[in-house]
């Protein structure tokens, strides 16, 4: 038996809007090994982001099962799902999704606050991650005062500050220029090399190159899973 950290079996998702049904995912099988870096690719509307959200337990599937550390998640309560997100997952959104009313440092500290980490330890960790991502000098800035590149760094800092086992990234370079995008991908690659498993949704072939494996989605189904030779 393979040592899968995260596994999806027969995963499907259907959206209902009045009488209209939209099938976003059909019987998708997906697996992530510990330390693996997987890129999910495919055309717009193929269900990449939906799959990522389901895998990150941010949404509930219509059918199928997701196993995290071999435990099925469908029967978990909202609180238990939140607990997994809190202690094991990190998430980087395409549009950064920073809280406008909080400063950079406060945004980054959020996951640690929910983990109820004591303040001195929390401050230390936030300081460490800010230094690592080169945003220390922006600690007291508000998101609106930052460029897109810095906002994405802060979003990544927030996602990794609690050292999650899996980092989910939804188009992490989608809103950045190529130079900033490259920097972000190098950062993700470095995190992966340090042991963090990563699932990333991307359009960009440049980004795919940083992953161990590229899963290609089309019309809600996985049509290929290719191990990268470029890496």
């Amino acid at each position: 038996m393979m040592n899968y950290l995260l596994r999806a079996v027969n995963l499907s998702k259907v959206y209902h809007n009045g009488n209209v049904q939209t099938i976003a995912l059909r019987q998708v099988h997906f697996a992530l090994q510990e330390g693996e870096f997987v890129a999910i690719t495919g055309p717009s509307g193929c269900g990449k982001s939906t799959l990522l959200h389901l895998l990150a337990l941010m949404d509930k599937p219509t059918g199928g099962e997701i196993y995290f550390m071999h435990q099925p998640t469908s029967g978990l309560s909202d609180k238990q799902r939140a607990q997994i997100r809190r202690y094991h997952f990190g998430f980087v959104f395409q549009n950064f999704n920073l809280i406008e009313e909080l400063t950079v440092a406060e945004n980054i500290a959020l996951p640690l606050i929910y983990q109820r980490l004591p303040e001195p330890e929390r401050k230390h960790k936030v300081w460490q991650v800010m230094e690592r991502l080169d945003v220390l000098h922006k600690a007291n800035f508000y998101p609106m005062q930052l460029s897109g590149g810095y906002q994405q760094r802060v979003a990544i800092a927030r996602a990794i500050v609690a050292r999650p086992q899996i980092l989910f990234a939804d188009e992490p370079t989608g809103n950045l220029d190529s130079q900033r995008g490259l920097e972000v991908m190098e950062l993700l690659s470095e995190l992966n090399q340090q042991g963090m498993s990563i699932v990333m949704v991307t359009h960009s072939q440049q980004c795919v190159k940083f992953a161990h494996r590229a899963v290609h989605l089309f019309d809600g189904q996985i049509v290929s899973s290719v191990i990268s030779h470029l890496r």
Binding site: A56, M58, D78, K79, A82, Q83, R85, R86, Y87, F89, F91, F93, N97, L98, I99, L110, P111, Y114, Q115, R158
Partner: peptide, 8 residues
């Protein structure tokens, strides 16, 4: 966002 991060 807070929910995604793990707030109950």
């Amino acid at each position: 966002i807070r929910k995604a991060i793990g707030a109950y």
